[in-house]
Nucleic acid binder design. Sequence first.
DNA 1: ATAGTCTTTGAGACTCATTCTCAATTATTA
DNA 2: TAATAATTGAGAATGAGTCTCAAAGACTAT
Lengths: 143, 143
Amino acid sequence: MGNENRVFGKYLISKGLKLTKPRKIILDTVFATHKHFNVDELYDLIRKKHKDVSRATIYRTIPLLVDSGLIKQSLRCLAKDHYEHTYGHDRHLHLICEKCGKIIEVESRETENILNELAKKHNFNIREFNVGAKGICKKCRNK
Amino acid sequence: MGNENRVFGKYLISKGLKLTKPRKIILDTVFATHKHFNVDELYDLIRKKHKDVSRATIYRTIPLLVDSGLIKQSLRCLAKDHYEHTYGHDRHLHLICEKCGKIIEVESRETENILNELAKKHNFNIREFNVGAKGICKKCRNK
DNA sequence: ATAGTCTTTGAGACTCATTCTCAATTATTA
DNA sequence: TAATAATTGAGAATGAGTCTCAAAGACTAT
């Protein structure tokens, strides 16, 4: 906690950018929860406290957070991009329920080890893993 | 070859829908190649031979092909949904180059076995696997 | 401080993939 | 052949994400 600030600050400096008030608010809000989020959700959260941060700035700041390694685009759901923390989070994969939208996070490095092997064979440099499956969760099946 | 016709026909009947000319053209064009495709590419391919199939019908037919199990949405690239055959194709995963957009397909059931295990633990019914990674391919790295 | 320079911002216009509407057409059934 | 229901093409509508631009803010050198 609080470390994200340092990471983001360093990143911005390295790019000749500034840690402004809106960027700080966005960063803090993103790391106030541990959930996946999309821009609308983030916007609503921010707006509860700060009436002066625009959607445009959120859209502009997210790529900076991604590039700094703090978050990553994790999945697309209902035509919206979703993001999640990478900083301080273990690698995990997603089981996404297509009925209720619930996202089950499961820890597993096995799949990544396999992907790493395969990538090596193909001389491919992995930057980001995307492992998961879509289907129906227990709750939705029992109705 | 030709089997897709039967599968799609059966599916349509089961839903009280009809195998019309435009739907047949779309089906045939989708299965004329073995490549990933997006709507624009499909539209261009179709338009070479048939001037009378609209984008709207393509957009309407794709969900039918997905629902019938013949194709699936495989990835999103440059803000466009891409699709691939599932019928008659082995399961595979994707290594996507972020520089040149190249998609390397790698056969592997291992990751799916692992996912199946994990899903069982969480009482989750998998309908579709999504396994892959993004990064840089050999060619792009050597520049 | 002050001026000058460069970055950032909010607001709203814009883009573009995808979805929707609707009147006209086609397939199927009676 | 008429009636019914599904389907179509064309273009309008939607909506997430991007871009523009004038105003505001941050920083530097004086």
